[in-house]
């Protein structure tokens, strides 16, 4: 099974993000970057498919030189090959999808796995873009995956329930939390990962379709008012809801 996992490098989940002086980009000072947590589920699923069916797992990212660290993490988890589609410019989801599609198009992957979203820009567009650009099925937000031969059965999280859909390989699967428990890297794998090559591919020229105009931090929530349980405060509550919150 020839498996492709698309990974992205995102700020660590607990990092407090500040907006840079240009008002359009995140300030990267002091920010720790990690492998996108949803991509970890995708990678783990890829590794399990390989363990069951044989074949190889390739992890790929569209990013600048700095993102080689998450490729090393992918290798340490067990990816066989990794590649970076290199660009040092700011780019959008369309640019990413075009480049991933270009990379995938002549390599005959049986399945393409990726996180349901990157937790940085949250565009959630790549899985659908990729399906369109490659002309293959794309199943999103998958929390359980079964593959027998070419038949794919995927359980999707939908609002208030589950949906089971089927498709044929090759296809695209975007991973939801709960799909699996990503493995912890083992020391021998970390050591081996260090000496494996990272394939470098130049990004294809492709005009982004969106431009970021402005970025801002949400304003702080207004402080709450705590009232005691007395009758007097009930009147006060009504007054506040009417005059301050203006909801009644």
């Amino acid at each position: 099974m020839n498996i492709l996992v698309c990974v992205s490098r995102v700020p660590d989940t607990t990092t407090r993000i500040l907006v840079g002086p240009d008002g359009k980009t995140a300030d990267k000072t002091g920010v720790k970057f990690v492998l996108n947590p949803f991509d970890e589920f995708a990678l783990e699923e890829g590794l399990r498919l390989r363990e069951k069916n044989g074949g190889s797992v390739t992890a790929v990212t569209v990013a600048g030189e700095v993102a080689k660290d998450i490729l090393r993490t992918s290798l340490a988890m067990g990816a066989d090959k990794v590649a970076i589609i290199k660009t040092e410019n700011e780019f959008d989801s369309y640019f990413t999808a075009q480049n991933l599609a270009e990379f995938a198009s002549n390599r005959a992957f049986d399945i393409i796995l990726l996180g349901k979203q990157s937790i940085d820009y949250d565009s959630l567009q790549i899985p659908a873009y990729l399906g369109e650009l490659l002309g293959i099925p794309s199943i999103g937000v998958v929390s359980k995956l079964q593959i027998e031969g070419n038949n794919v059965s995927a359980e999707r999280d939908i609002e208030g329930g589950k949906e089971i859909v089927s498709a044929q390989l090759p296809c695209i699967i975007s991973a939801q939390k709960g799909l699996n428990e990503p493995r912890y890297p083992k020391l021998p794998d970390i050591m081996k990962a260090k000496s494996k090559p990272i394939e470098e591919v130049a990004a294809i020229d492709c005009q982004p379709r969106t431009t970021i105009l402005e970025m801002s931090i949400p304003s702080k929530k207004r402080a709450g008012v705590i009232l005691d349980g007395s009758d007097g405060s009930l009147d006060k509550l009504v007054t506040l809801l009417h005059e301050e919150a203006k909801v009644i």
Binding site: D12, L35, K186
Partner: peptide, 25 residues
């Protein structure tokens, strides 16, 4: 890392099943 590995294999048969981390996640 190499030295930790050597040390751990000296005291445990489970060195290869032990977990290691180099990043914040």
């Amino acid at each position: 890392l190499v030295q930790w590995y050597e040390l751990i294999t000296k005291y445990s048969d489970l060195a290869d099943g032990s977990w290691f981390a180099l990043n914040e996640t």
